[in-house]
Amino acid sequence: MISTAEDTLQLAEALDTTSCDYVFCDIGMRGMDGESSSIAFLRRLSWQERRPKIIVVTMISHSRMLAGLLQLGIDGIIDKRDPIECLTEAVSVIGNGGRFLSPCVAEAVSHLPHSSPARAGVLSRREWEVFRLYASGLLIHDIAKRFGRSSKTIATQKRSGMRKLGLETETELIEYLRQVGLV
């Protein structure tokens, strides 16, 4: 049986009503309760004793984020830039008890230093909104004015979001925002 979903709420409803062996999910899929991604949902799904195999399909190539997904128990990760044949290869490898990383994902994860922690964080609604406005070109003090908060509060929310995602530099943040389509 095949089912589709536009967000994690629809995905959860489909999983409640449709028996399946595999879930293919983009981590950029809108999360429940205003979450910016499907990571929190995938974390809960991966903890279930009886669950389908989970294959994440993504454009994000940030090594800490990808390694964090593996720590969550995701069975396979496919970079959207890799060949379409990776989908069938992933099903085959995972069906035989393995874990699958497409070539671009394997390359990105191989560059993660051992001392660098893996992170697959979930941004709060406000952290996501700060990132969205920052990506649109607003400065921290402009975002603070918009929300009626201090610049220090907004800067803290920005840093907190970056920490959750394992982003250490402004360059990494800009690259992440580009990969999720905000820049």
Score class of each variant (00 low, 15 high):
Ser19Val: 14
Ile60His: 03
Asp142Leu: 08
Tyr22Gln: 05
Ala40Lys: 15
Pro103Thr: 06
Val183His: 14
Gln48Phe: 10
Val56Gln: 03
Val183Pro: 10
Cys25Phe: 10
Phe131Gln: 03
Leu182Gln: 09
Ala118Arg: 01
Val109His: 05
Met32Val: 03
Leu66Gln: 00
Arg149Lys: 10
Ala106Asn: 09
Ile84Cys: 14
Asp33Thr: 11
Gln48Asn: 07
Thr153Phe: 08
Gly97Gln: 00
Glu49Arg: 11
Asp79Met: 09
Glu107Trp: 06
His141Met: 13
Ser3Glu: 12
Gly28Asn: 12
Gly148Tyr: 07
Lys164Phe: 00
Gly148Val: 09
Ser160Lys: 06
Leu112Gly: 01
Thr88Val: 13
Val23Thr: 04
Ile154Asp: 00
Ile77Phe: 04
Gly68Tyr: 00
Tyr22Leu: 08
Ser3Trp: 10
Ile60Trp: 03
Tyr22Glu: 02
Ala155Pro: 10
Asp26Gln: 11
Phe147Asn: 11
Ser19Asn: 12
Phe100Thr: 02
Leu101Tyr: 06
Arg159Ile: 11
Gly98Ile: 00
Ala5Trp: 11
Ser38Glu: 07
Asp82Lys: 08
Tyr22Ile: 06
Val122Pro: 00
Ile60Ala: 02
Ala120Phe: 06
Met65Tyr: 07
Lys145Gln: 15
Ala14His: 11
Met29Leu: 13
His62Asp: 05
Arg43Glu: 12
His141Asn: 15
Glu170Trp: 08
Arg163Cys: 04
Val109Leu: 11
Val183Asp: 13
Cys20Phe: 00
Lys152Gln: 15
Arg30Glu: 14
Trp128Thr: 15
Ser63Thr: 03
Glu85Ile: 14
Gln48Val: 05
Arg43Gln: 14
Arg178Glu: 08
Thr171Gln: 14
Phe147Val: 13
Asp79Ala: 10
His114Ile: 14
Gly97Lys: 04
Ala135Cys: 06
Ser19Pro: 00
Thr88Ala: 12
Gly181Glu: 09
Phe131Asp: 00
Glu127Ile: 05
Asp33Lys: 10
Gly148Gln: 02
Tyr134Lys: 13
Ser110Phe: 01
Ala155Tyr: 10
Glu89Leu: 06
Asp75Ala: 02
Ala106Lys: 09
Met1Glu: 13
Phe100Asn: 03
Ile140His: 01
Arg132Pro: 06
Glu129Gly: 07
Ser61His: 01
Lys158Asp: 04
Val56Leu: 07
Asp21Ala: 08
Glu129Asn: 14
Ile2Asp: 07
Ser63Asp: 06
Ser160Gly: 11
Ser136His: 15
Arg30Ile: 11
Tyr134Met: 12
Ile154Trp: 02
Asp7Val: 06
Leu133Cys: 07
His114Cys: 14
Arg119Leu: 02
Gly95Gln: 04
Thr4Leu: 15
Glu175Ile: 09
Asp142Lys: 10
Arg44Cys: 10
Gly166Cys: 08
Phe41Lys: 05
Glu127Arg: 01
Ser61Leu: 03
Glu49Leu: 08
Leu112Cys: 04
Gln157Trp: 12
Val122Trp: 01
Pro113Asp: 07
Phe41Arg: 02
Phe147Tyr: 15
Leu138Asn: 03
Glu170Ser: 11
Ser124Val: 01
Thr169Asn: 04
Thr18Pro: 04
Leu133Met: 10
Ala67Phe: 03
Gly68Lys: 02
